[in-house]
């Protein structure tokens, strides 16, 4: 069962895997860094709690425009992925 080598398909998969791994590693490193910093002492622990309270006080309505755009882009991306299945399934 020989599978056909497709350059673009490989590129697409590689791009998705590399980008996802890179994003996960960056976010993980950042989270671990901040957690270690906030747990490094009593004062920094209080600072961490304050930072959490500061984050909880974020007014979502202020970023409603950006969040709406992100939701729209996500919807477009989802639709494009679905259309891929449809186009490839038609062959």
């Amino acid at each position: 069962m020989a599978t056909e080598f497709d350059m673009f398909f490989t590129f697409r998969w590689l791009l998705a895997i590399v980008c996802t791994v890179y994003a996960v590693v960056c976010i993980w490193r950042s989270w671990v860094g901040w957690l270690m910093y906030f747990r490094s002492g009593r004062r920094t622990a209080v600072l961490g709690h304050y930072a959490m309270v500061l984050l909880l006080r974020v007014r979502i309505r202020r970023f409603s425009c950006e969040l709406f755009q992100i939701a729209a882009l996500l919807a477009i991306l989802g639709w494009l992925v679905y259309v891929h299945r449809w186009v490839e399934g038609a062959t």
Partner: peptide
């Protein structure tokens, strides 16, 4: 949020390119 938006725009562009490629193929 701006960075997320830029990433999503890039993803959408690549998806469009990929879709065009799949269609042509």
């Amino acid at each position: 949020l701006k960075l997320i938006k830029i990433t999503l725009v890039g993803s959408v562009l690549v998806a469009i390119l990929s879709l065009a490629y799949s269609y042509v193929k």
